[in-house]
Nucleic acid binder design. Structure first.
Lengths: 154, 154
DNA sequence: TCACAATCGTCGGTGCACTGAACAATACCC
DNA sequence: GGGTATTGTTCAGTGCACCGACGATTGTGA
């Protein structure tokens, strides 16, 4: 009666998109390393020695989640945690040689997977796909922080 | 060095999009009922008396996940599970009055949330947004079933 | 200097999502 | 009619994702 068409609900579409990606990742990239784990490896390739919180910021994960992901990567021997001698609250993170190798290998496979994933779209549509999703995600992300005012509050 | 730009990775974008949606849903729709739970309510408004597996199929959840979601909705008194007298394996699902009321209330709020969520896009861009995501998700979903052959195998 | 606030990490709790295995009920086929 | 396959549900295990609370460390201001 009053039922709604979920195909016009962005949340539902986003969930389905992620499921589809999860499926393809598992078959084409790795069954061991997940996509968020790869994102963490990638962040540490770009900026070795980051602390945990900053890595979470880079890849878009909160403190609790990033702690678990990092703990799994550490258990697999892909990264090292060392206390920051300058600031005893932080752990400095750095990839091991194994971590670097893994990142390199997965980078190749991920590129292949992305091609397959985006194959249904023409090249210009792919660019649009990225842009539209990014705009929506950025805007919603912006609603989270109460928009730091341009003028300092009294 | 060999780090990759995650903003051109559809999986990463999909994850961020869903996080953004989760955030907005929590603040604008409900802190109790989640988006997948609403999808289940909606499926049962459209087709009362479905069994668990079919509901999962409608909303895109596997058997394990749908079982948990339904168990939570049942615990909240939003739906009833009854053994199918015709087929003792199934449970027939039906919303309670409370479930119907909840669905109605959330439908209104969800519509408002979708407007806010999609506000960064012009109307024609929103249509494109839906179409592009749906095409990618459908295609990947299609890869899952090994494409039932048109000609029966020997 | 010393109390107070901010920051980093951890822990507990909830919920989504998948796989693989087990179990019960039904359907099918000889 | 009875053995076998199929189907619906559940359970155990793993992993992502959030929140709120807590302890430890650092930074700041009176």
């Amino acid at each position: 009666m009053a039922a709604v068409d979920l195909t016009t609900h962005p949340g539902h579409l986003a969930r389905r998109l992620q499921q589809a990606h999860y499926l393809l990742w598992n078959t084409m990239v790795s069954e061991e390393i997940t996509s968020p784990q790869f994102a963490v490896l990638n962040a540490l390739v770009a900026e070795p020695g980051l602390d945990q919180r900053t890595v979470g910021e880079r890849v878009g994960l909160d403190r609790s989640t990033i702690a678990e992901v990092i703990s799994r990567l550490g258990r697999r021997g892909l990264l090292d945690k060392v206390r920051d001698p300058q600031d005893g609250r932080r752990f400095l993170l750095r990839l091991t040689d194994d971590g670097l190798r893994t990142h390199k290998k997965l980078t190749v496979r991920t590129a292949r997977m992305n091609q397959v994933f985006l194959a249904p779209l023409a090249t210009d549509e792919q660019a649009l796909f990225f842009e539209l999703i990014r705009r929506v995600a950025d805007a919603a992300e912006g609603l989270r922080n109460p928009s730091e005012p341009l003028v300092a509050p009294s």
